[in-house]
């Protein structure tokens, strides 16, 4: 092979490698691995570092401050404070980059967070690239969320579920974490004033069967009240199931959190501002959506009916509106 040909091949190889280091829409891949569950990438773009599972953005931090830059919907995982004013322990299903866990560590210093994550590779990436640290107040168990709940006998003040993934080929949700039997299990593991908060993606105005409607109907079959927190900056909707005897309005609830706020047990700066999206009315689709059960849970069919994300936004789990 001549020196010139070798040079051309080397240039092509370098070009290929360079192309691999940048992703569509900009950004530099700083870490990449394939676990048994995901193609995991850590991507830096501008002032942010993101965690991607396949083509779906799971977590984001600001490079200047790892505890900033989180998605808006993470703030709605603090809403259990409206019902449980003395929270000390929380179970979270799904780790991602650890945004919610780190936000709890920062803004709720008296709360212990136990996280169940299925993929051990995700824990390593969260620790290596997103500043997540295990400690006595931040424990991680590698397990399936439902299996963990089945085998655990602990009681939690809140259970937060963030197992939703959205990619270019559509969204997916583990069906066994969306059924009536799952929510009964969650209810059994909740303390007296325990609350469940569940993140999914959808719209509230859709009157055809969809996942938000099905989740609302299913949660309502287990919890006496289900409230909605639709994010302003994305399509995320956080459903909150509680044991209120009667549905309450935001102005009746926010005083509950004041003692925790005044005592410094709750420090999330945006907490009261986020109450602006509070919604009691069920989504339009809940009447036409099925009740999800272990025996019948067409979650993939329900997700398939959702509107496609705009191409430039498909990478994001928290797809901007």
């Amino acid at each position: 092979m001549t020196l010139r040909k070798q040079g051309v091949l080397a240039a092509l190889a370098l070009g290929f490698l360079a192309a691999r280091e940048t992703i569509a829409g900009g950004g530099t891949v700083v870490f990449e691995t394939t676990s048994v569950y995901h193609h995991i990438r850590v991507v830096e773009a501008g002032e942010y570092r993101s965690l991607l599972f396949d083509s779906s953005e799971q977590s984001r931090i600001a490079l200047a401050d790892p505890e900033a830059g989180r998605f808006e919907y993470i703030d709605y995982f603090f809403m259990p404070w409206l019902w449980n004013v003395a929270m000390t322990n929380v179970l979270m299903i799904g780790l991602g980059g650890g945004s919610a866990q780190q936000a709890y560590a920062r803004y709720c210093p008296g709360v212990t967070v136990e996280t169940v994550e299925l993929d051990p590779a995700v824990l390593k990436v969260a620790e290596d690239y997103f500043g997540f640290r295990q400690s006595p107040r931040q424990r991680v168990v590698i397990s399936d969320g439902r299996m963990f709940l089945q085998r655990s006998r602990r009681q939690y003040d809140a259970v937060l579920v963030d197992a939703y993934v959205e990619g270019r080929y559509g969204a997916s949700i583990p069906y066994h974490l969306a059924t009536q039997e799952f929510f009964r299990l969650v209810s059994d593991r909740l303390a007296t004033n325990g609350v469940v908060a569940y993140n999914c993606i959808g719209v509230l105005q859709n009157d055809k069967a969809d996942l938000v409607g099905a989740l609302h109907r299913t949660m309502k079959s287990v919890f006496s009240q289900v409230y909605l927190f639709p994010a302003r900056e994305s399509w995320n909707v956080v459903l909150v199931g509680t044991r209120d005897a009667e549905a309450k309005k935001a102005h009746e609830l926010w005083p509950n959190a004041m003692p925790a706020w005044q005592s410094g047990r709750l420090r999330l700066p945006t907490f009261f501002q986020r109450l602006g999206v509070f919604r009691v009315a069920p989504p339009a689709s809940s009447l036409n959506s099925p009740l999800l059960a272990d025996d019948y849970a067409p979650v993939d069919g329900l997700l398939g009916g959702m509107r496609p994300l705009a191409p430039q936004l498909r990478r994001q789990t928290a797809a901007p509106r």
Partner: peptide
């Protein structure tokens, strides 16, 4: 796979 998932989870 669905039938077993309720007891063995969504693991690989």
């Amino acid at each position: 796979a669905r039938f077993l998932g309720r007891d063995f989870g969504g693991s690989f």
